[in-house]
Design a protein around this nucleic acid. Sequence first.
DNA 1: CTAGTATATGAGTATATGCTCAGATTATAA
DNA 2: TTATAATCTGAGCATATACTCATATACTAG
Lengths: 123, 123
Amino acid sequence: MEDQQQANIDDLCRCRCIHEDRVSLARKSALSDTENSHLSHFFKALGDPSRLQILWALEKGEMCVCDLAAFIGISESAVSHQLRLLRQLQIVVNRRDGAVLYYRLNNGYVSSLLQDTLKNLNR
Amino acid sequence: MEDQQQANIDDLCRCRCIHEDRVSLARKSALSDTENSHLSHFFKALGDPSRLQILWALEKGEMCVCDLAAFIGISESAVSHQLRLLRQLQIVVNRRDGAVLYYRLNNGYVSSLLQDTLKNLNR
DNA sequence: CTAGTATATGAGTATATGCTCAGATTATAA
DNA sequence: TTATAATCTGAGCATATACTCATATACTAG
């Protein structure tokens, strides 16, 4: 047990890295676990073709679930699942009007992010 | 055959969407398949904790594969796989110095993107 | 040349993800 | 109330993905 643990530690410490200074510099300004988690979940949410189409459409104004389903060409259930994820990350919000839920972007950041990134990729 | 095809068309056209105008508006300014593909691959590349750590570290200066492996705490092979993906998307580039490959961000866009997004999430 | 170092790559595997389907909610209307 | 519409949600499945391991490649030193 003790030996096994020691072996693991030795294995981890067997560092053949060349630039200790750069590694420690990177460590000093590293993202916290929380920041890294939030950032990666955010970008992952944008990293799917269906969700991107949803966000790009909502940039032009609010839409309901069946609007989005008709626009993208996937089922309303699939849209609803994706909207839940975007809602949980507070990327979109909705308002209810009777039985219909209208979705929109939560703030202008995603909108400008998409615009800027598209420009950058076309560069 | 003909009937089957007709049935499919009818199925697609059985649109119970409420706002034809909004759907057609979204269609007019929709992303092309190429744009959507490029954008989603780009964001997907940023949407992983390990790759984010790599990019965040490279923002401070170039690093070699074993530096990054030591910093992140995953194998050099795993780092190399992720760097290949980031290379293919031209998010990072490398330069060779003997047997060592130094990686860096390809341009300033990703750097400012990460900074801005982190600020936005902390808002 | 050989030995060693740094990195790359293909195959395999466990987990994550995006969709479909069936059924549950929520609200309107008869 | 019941019927219908709009949406949500859990389970299941097929694919995608992030890693490990073994091996290959590229370079240096001797």
